[in-house]
């Protein structure tokens, strides 16, 4: 009998514990692209269409875009109506209008050099009312970019929406937030209360295809998550907007989601170009990026405060205590970006 044994010893092994770090990659031959970002919906409102150049990566700040001024911007419907958009600031074109459900709309943008850009006509679909917004608190732990373990509580909002049977809907949720902020500092004589507009869903993309579920109710679909912190100490008001878009737009956001969620994992799709609904009629091969959205809209407000979140106490930012750090905004809350001293009329006392 022959027995052969292998004993592996002293092996230091961190199999599959991959590491990620930043490297320099030489990118050349980059060219700017014309980009369009615009939306119209079925509520009477001022709508904006932004015309700009995409930012070349590695040159300056990727988030600052070169505006394209002097364009003639119009939105047209299938009934021959036309709405002129006027340049309010460089690259931003605005008009007050209201879309009508069932009609088809497109935009036509003629640049100063004569280049004509058109979007594919899209039908405006009605958005069913949001039945209910619910909130949930979850304790999570994760590893941050620096590799540290972090534990925090998050607030997640979910939407429940009933939609007509046999209807295929493509929905997207967005949330706007305003929170109440109380000044406090040691030996304060008088303190103010500010109402701060909060960009709660920045880079948050939540879309939904009703064909993926059974029945005709979307049950508590989570759509935005934010950290449970001082913003909820008094009251946080969410304005939830539910957009009903076309299937083509849904596919656009789906690919946007693919592109922005690429994280180097095994299952990453090879990246490609996100194709929007815009084209240059003079040169169909030129790639115009961005999207002109035609959507139905329905809205609902949700108030989150310690009571509605079932919290005994949520620590505010500012204290009168000398033993706590005093942040500058605790002495003057109007220094916070997008803050306002006027209480919104919808505010629950």
């Amino acid at each position: 009998m022959r027995l052969q044994k292998y004993v592996l010893g002293l092996s230091i092994l961190i199999l599959l514990s991959s590491c990620i770090d930043e490297i320099k990659l030489d990118i050349d031959n980059a060219t700017q692209r014309i980009a369009i970002d615009g939306l119209i919906a079925d509520s009477l409102d001022t709508y904006t269409i932004q015309v700009f150049q995409s930012a070349i990566i590695g040159v300056g700040n990727d988030n600052v875009f070169e505006p394209i001024s002097g364009a003639s911007v119009k939105v047209l419907d299938d009934q021959g109506n036309s709405f002129d958009f006027v340049e309010t600031e460089a690259g931003f074109y605005a008009a007050e209008m209201q879309g009508i459900v069932g009609r088809s709309y497109h935009t036509e943008i003629i640049l100063a050099d004569g280049t004509t850009i058109q979007s594919t006509p899209a039908q405006l679909n009605a958005s069913p009312p949001i039945k209910e917004i619910t909130s949930k608190i979850e304790d999570i732990s994760f590893t941050d970019v620096g590799g540290n373990a972090v534990a925090q509580s998050n607030v997640t909002l979910s939407a429940t929406t009933e939609f007509p049977a046999n209807e295929e809907l493509f929905l997207r949720w967005r949330a706007l937030g305003v929170y109440e902020f109380h000044e406090a500092y040691p030996m304060a004589i008088s303190t103010k209360v500010c109402y701060v507009q909060n960009n709660v869903d920045l880079n948050n993309l939540k879309i939904f295809d009703t064909r993926t579920i059974d029945g005709n109710t979307i049950e508590e679909e989570p759509f935005v998550t934010t950290k449970l912190d001082y913003r909820f100490a008094f009251q946080y008001a969410f304005l939830v907007r539910q957009y009903a878009m076309t299937e083509a737009e849904y596919k656009y956001w789906e690919t946007v989601n693919d592109v922005i969620s690429i994280d180097g994992s095994l299952f990453d799709p090879p990246p490609g170009t996100v194709r929007g609904n815009l084209r240059n009629i003079n040169d169909p091969n030129e790639e115009i990026v961005g999207y002109f959205s035609v959507s139905g809209i329905s809205t609902k407000r949700f108030f989150a405060n310690p009571q509605s979140l079932n919290q005994v106490f949520i620590e505010p930012r500012c204290f009168e205590s000398p033993f706590r750090p005093t942040f500058p905004e605790c002495m003057d809350c109007t220094t916070i970006l997008n803050s306002n001293l006027d209480k919104p009329d919808y505010w629950i006392p």
């Binding site: 031959n29 692209r33 970002d37 967005r174 880079n203 946007v256 996100v274």
Partner: peptide, 14 residues
């Protein structure tokens, strides 16, 4: 090679 914004998505790579 470049990036643009669309809605609340700040930066979509091209």
């Amino acid at each position: 090679v470049s990036a643009y914004s669309s809605g609340n998505i700040l930066s979509i790579p091209v």
